[in-house]
Write a protein that binds this DNA or RNA. Structure first.
Lengths: 331, 331
DNA sequence: TCGGGTTTTGAATACGTATTCAAAGTAACG
DNA sequence: CGTTACTTTGAATACGTATTCAAAACCCGA
């Protein structure tokens, strides 16, 4: 490992001088600067980022704690986050939330030296909130949020649920199912609540059609099987994410249903795949092109760079709209 | 920031002793160990990973340089890699290859302090190879590989191309297209070559049906449009990845084609999505359940932990097999 | 109680960089 | 040439931990 000392020796200057040319401080004489640059090249010197961090207290590293990538929503946010962070000179350590036990992940994150955290994996009452606060690092939640105040970027989930309900009601559906969860996350909680509230304004609700699940293929599958196995089947389903909708469609097709002729289905998130001609999934999303991850990372980095005071809360709730495509139709 | 010195002071011992209880060396008296543990808790002490790394020369951090996540193949490998690395106590810094200019990414990677690198983004003649070698870190290539020797995990791409050709030939197809590229990557190079070699054994080849592209939606779209716009259209297409196949299907459906009645299509990688009832994509993959990313990261970590000598080359080439589903049929 | 051996301890140092501070050098000006 | 002001330099130190080494404490048998 070649260090700044080695460079210094070779260039015939002190280590301080080497450090100074590294940091582009223009207080080095031209001749010395050249000598140092030359020596660096000859030795193929690369500054040790670890040592730098130790003194600068900056790691230029962020942690992303994301939902799983088999959900296309997180494919898009992860891509945006990593690429934007990179553009701004930050590295991203990625972690995936772990259905059973997030503590291992959090333990790992908490013990790292980081400049900031962006996460989607928080629950409304998550005790991790306090620990994150205690770290005294900027952190922003995207998609989901915690009940306590903090920086977040979300979509108006309640309103989204209502939109879905409205859509189905307008199409004349009477038996409408819901699949999604867990409900202790702000996303599913809001979507479910808004959906149910709206339905109840016009129909009497059949509890057998409301399926709280997690996001695993297994549970979605089970929910669809149960729902369609009933004597009185639904004619429409609101899947609380596109990921769930796509899994549900897989099962429905396996069972021989035609969509939307036999059953309408509406997702949420407006992921790229929803537009594919093999799906043309009706869904709910925001108007803006930039996804929630991108918005979140922009705010986080703004905070790190001092463009936003950290004590002014970032609380962004986007307006949802319906993207009507071909998986829903009138009854 | 509470340091080991603070803990030492509070516990009434020296910093050395604190360090010793941290590293579970059992050469600390019980009474002192307890005092220190107590002080740590009271102060909510977390060891500074940066400082640790500076002396230990280990960062427990890996870099993953991956293809883009809109390719479902990389969704699966990225998930496997990150999760497995985490299990083994390694953090993963993720980078995505950048169509235009990978140098920014590499520059970032090369300047980090890392324990190892796993990457899919290398070209057969990529000059980055030498720089990676020079870092003197273990690195393994998965999916793609370089022409020069190094650790890699791949599938037999040439054989895969032949399999695809065989499949179409058996089904009686005569005009068979190819979409994929760039051909300076080992994957596309092998697949294309094997495919063409096999075809030529039985047919005269129409160059207008061989489309070298990159992996962008734009180019795939263009290739499909061009191919199907011809006077003599193909009756079958080998898309060199499932990702390309799925994009191609999108365009084909948009153009009104039924699959496989109007045109057969075969992908490669056997990604999860290929099994979806909205695709049921015929494709080529390996037999083993574990994906290439998972295999690669296992080898990498084995090397880091000394379970494999770094100088014994890891060169894994998996056997491809055809997964016949419903996007290909006899003509 | 003493001596030898073993365990436990803390002072000192190293890791590679940034930064402070005082000294040395240089330029400008009268 | 002397003075002042400014630029450039290197020695020393700090960052937070692990580790070495020698000293201290302890244990045990004689």
């Amino acid at each position: 490992m070649v260090s700044s000392k080695d460079v210094a020796k070779r260039a015939g200057v002190s280590q301080s001088t080497v450090s100074r040319v590294l940091n582009a401080s223009n207080q080095v004489s031209k001749t010395n600067a050249e000598k140092v640059t030359k020596a660096m090249k000859e030795l193929n010197y690369r500054p040790n980022a670890i040592a730098r961090s130790l003194v600068s207290k900056q790691t230029k590293t962020l942690a992303l704690i994301s939902g799983p990538l088999h959900n296309p929503f997180f494919v898009e946010t992860t891509t945006s986050i990593i690429n934007y962070a990179n553009e701004k000179g930050y590295k991203t350590n990625v972690f995936f939330e772990n259905a059973g036990d997030n503590m291992a992940v959090y333990e790992s994150v908490l013990s790292m030296q980081l400049d900031g955290i962006i996460l989607s994996s928080i629950f409304m009452e998550d005790p991790i909130y306090e620990e994150l606060k205690a770290l005294n690092l900027p952190f922003v939640m995207f998609n989901r949020k915690h009940n306590k105040p903090g920086h977040f970027v979300e979509i108006d989930n309640r309103k989204a649920g209502k939109l879905a309900a409205d859509h189905f009601l307008e199409l004349g559906h009477k038996r409408i199912g819901f699949i999604g969860g867990p409900l202790y996350t702000s996303t599913f909680h809001g979507r479910c609540e808004g959906f149910i509230v709206k339905l109840k304004e016009h129909l009497s609700l059949d509890d057998a059609l409301i399926h709280e699940t997690d996001t695993s293929e297994k549970e979605i599958r089970e929910a669809v099987l149960k729902m369609m196995g009933q004597k009185h089947k639904p004619t429409a389903i609101f899947a609380a994410t596109d990921s769930i909708a796509i899994l549900a469609i897989d099962v429905l097709k396996e069972l021989g249903y035609d969509i939307p002729d036999d059953i309408s289905i509406c997702g949420m998130d407006n992921v790229r795949l929803a537009r594919h001609h093999s799906f043309e999934l009706t869904t709910i999303g925001q108007k803006t092109e930039q996804n929630l991850g991108r918005l979140g990372i922009e705010y986080l980095i703004d905070m790190l760079e001092g463009n936003i005071q950290e004590d002014t809360p970032v609380e962004v709730t986007l307006e949802p709209i319906l993207y009507q495509r071909k998986t829903t139709c009138a009854i």
